[in-house]
Design a protein around this nucleic acid. Structure first.
Lengths: 226, 226
DNA sequence: GTCTATAGGAGGATAGAC
DNA sequence: GTCTATCCTCCTATAGAC
């Protein structure tokens, strides 16, 4: 089952063309809002080929996620492994951990040539769509990465209670997701956005670090440790 | 056109029952994933009544948003007007501005009895769904509130450049939206969430304030003002 | 105002020729 | 492996009885 992304050979790979077309359409219109006919028209393949190659519309949706999420989480684990190997057992800096975790999705979102940007928009919108089979699927794909990075954050921020770190990781994922997928929504709300997109990452990182290291709110100051 | 929310009178109001039913279904399955039959079945009304009362499925969707967003933004403007009247012209504290802006949606999200929680889930998911008619609609509903609060934040944080504040407001809206609509997603990722939901607000506020007041990243430190 | 019945079309999936 | 033709379900919207 070849999975070539370019179309150097006449007729490219049918399955790959279907994946690319459906990725864009799912991002644009959602799962329910995208029909098989829209997909096969955009991919310039026959209507029956989706069921032939993937079995069903739902299975196609899962495959769109699998190929990108696997890559994303591979990059994250590689970054963490590399940083930990170079640190000789001392805890990483919070900014390093954030860079390892949020760097890959931000770079993928900046890649408009190979569909990375499209996929990140899709991922952001899928987070808020409680489709059962997608959530179970993501829980499995994310489990190891979240576990590893959570532990790294505990070590990087010994003064912040662990429960607080889990919450703040959640808040950060929300901020990043919106920063990626909601930029045009913000442009609508505020009117203008003539800024350099390359500045998004340092802007966002500064914001996240500030939130991650914020002093505890009063209702939680009672007991420090744990 | 009466709009009574309870069902104290036999048969309640048909239009109100349709609104409540569709609000929940749109939150659960999205616009495209919700059919008129699902709505009329859940509301226990006739299939034709949606078109009679609202004209179309799309118009119904807009009305679901209109009634809640109007309330939400009314509360936000009221809070800001009150705080500014009490401050005798001096700038508000950042925490006050955040409380005015994010307090109403967080309280609405905590209200599980009158559908507020349901609507906030719907709002969160709609942010990432680029349906044209919804975005234009939200831009109009939000315009005044965002403008007023942005100005208040400029005054509350004179040391942070204005462009940075706009970005950080965006990041904050993302974090809040996820905190509200993605809690079960986080539970899936991390495994456990046995915490007091009343602690969400102080936790989130502390995080937001930290991010809002974070030091500028190096690439932006060149010029301070503006 | 509220219902039944149905028009008219789009949806996912598949059988079977090539 | 790829295509055409088609099945059958489901959709939104409306016409017209009550």
């Amino acid at each position: 089952m070849p999975q070539i992304a370019d179309d150097s050979r006449a007729g490219a790979d049918t399955a790959a063309r279907i994946l690319d077309a459906s990725e864009w359409l799912f991002a644009e219109h959602g799962f329910e809002g995208t029909s098989m006919r829209m997909i096969t028209t955009r991919a310039a393949v026959n209507l029956a080929s989706v069921n032939y190659h993937f079995g069903s519309k739902e299975a196609l949706f899962q495959e769109v996620f699998r190929r990108r999420l696997a890559e994303l989480n591979r990059l994250r684990l590689e970054a963490l492994n590399r940083m930990e190997a170079e640190s000789d057992g001392t805890a990483l800096k919070p900014s390093q951990v954030l860079e390892g975790f949020f760097g890959p999705p931000l770079e993928m979102a900046a890649d408009t040539e190979h569909g990375g940007h499209t996929f990140m928009r899709l991922l952001g919108r899928t987070y808020t769509e409680p489709a059962e089979f997608v959530r179970k699927f993501m829980a499995i794909e994310y489990a190891e990465v979240v576990e590893r990075y959570t532990v790294a954050l505990y070590a990087a921020l010994p003064d912040v209670p662990k429960a607080e770190i889990v919450w703040r990781l959640h808040f950060m994922m929300g901020a990043v997701s919106y920063a990626i997928s909601g930029i045009d929504a913000l442009a609508l709300l505020t009117g203008h956005f003539d800024d350099d997109p390359a500045l998004l990452k340092p802007r966002l990182t500064a914001f996240l670090l500030g939130g991650l290291r914020a002093p505890l709110p009063e209702p939680l100051k009672v007991s420090a440790g744990k």
